[in-house]
Computed example of a mutant assay.
Amino acid sequence: MKTKTADMGGWNLAYTDQGEGVPVVLLHGFCGSGAYWDEIVPLLESGCRVIVPDLRGHGASGSPNESYSMESMAGDIGKLIDGLGLGENKPVVLGHSLGGYVTLALAEKQADRLRAFGLVHSTAYPDDEKGRAGREKAKQTIQEQGLPAFLDGLIPKLFAPAHLQSMPEAVRKAREIGLGTSPEGAMRTLEAMRDRPDRNAVLWETRLPVLLVAGASDQVIPEERTFSVSGETISQQRIEAAGHMSMMETPGILAQIIKNFISGL
């Protein structure tokens, strides 16, 4: 996939853009990159225009010396949507984990630019006290021991326990992708995730179709925190064999869920 860049005013946002049809923007999780979606893109691109950015501080994107709030990151994606001329042909935005927090911020402020949105192994809830303490501990680990040491603790939690042995290549790839994160960007993103607000009201109040995807073996975000809201416009999908990384663990199942959601719009 050929990487392109969009000028964000002093730094560049990296992204890929391929396929034709309904535009779908896929946002990756923390210490990830667009490469998280490598197995999903080929399964969608026959019927969709699939746009996959690297969030600020992650992957091949720049790491600006400024706020990494969910609102700032959502602003980056809004600029990308504008730059690609998707004003008329509104995109579906789906966010994994951190990408889901960004998606919710985008849906809160710029819903009129979206066709639909979704959370993949993500939640509208804010961090609780334990979660906030965990962000601080993670930041301290990166500061004192470096990003590789932090990733050694993070990566095993992302996969269903059974997949750590059965999918060594996927686990290795996730760690390699993580090493492409700017340590400074990772620490700023941890602060932003720690401070993000409760956005369940976005799910309650939206008139847009919403997709919620949870993994039965997710050790990071349990399914009840993903399925926080139900309603006529909300599709809840549970993947039995997945942990936090269905795009790598069960790509065929996740791609089919996304295709079914899009075909129903």
Rank of each mutant, 00 (worst) to 15 (best):
V41K: 06
V220K: 02
P251C: 14
R188P: 07
A149W: 03
G180H: 09
Q237N: 12
N260I: 00
I81G: 00
M73Q: 09
T233H: 10
Q18E: 15
E45F: 03
V120W: 10
V52W: 05
G243S: 08
G32N: 11
T250N: 14
P197H: 08
P168C: 09
I177C: 09
N200W: 02
A186G: 10
A133N: 12
H163M: 14
F159H: 09
A186H: 09
L114S: 05
M245R: 00
S228W: 00
P42A: 03
L98I: 04
G231K: 01
K157M: 15
E240D: 14
G34I: 10
P64T: 07
E144G: 06
G10L: 10
H58D: 12
S263D: 15
A162T: 12
F227C: 02
E184S: 10
R132Y: 07
G75I: 01
R225I: 02
G10Y: 08
V52L: 10
T226I: 01
V102P: 06
G32S: 14
L80C: 03
T233P: 01
H28K: 14
L86M: 03
K79V: 09
T141H: 07
T189K: 13
V52P: 07
M247S: 13
L154Q: 12
E191L: 13
A255I: 08
K137T: 11
G99Y: 11
A14D: 13
M248W: 13
A105Y: 06
P156D: 01
G34P: 01
G252H: 13
P222R: 04
G10P: 05
C48R: 12
E71A: 08
H121M: 15
Q237D: 09
E191Y: 10
Q236S: 05
W37V: 07
V229W: 02
I257M: 11
G62L: 14
I262W: 03
H163F: 12
A116T: 06
I142P: 12
G215Q: 01
S263K: 12
H121V: 14
D17A: 07
D7S: 07
V202W: 05
S235N: 11
V210P: 02
G231N: 00
A133P: 05
G57W: 14
L154T: 07
P91N: 01
F159S: 09
G21W: 00
L203Y: 02
E240G: 01
G29H: 10
P156C: 02
Q165E: 15
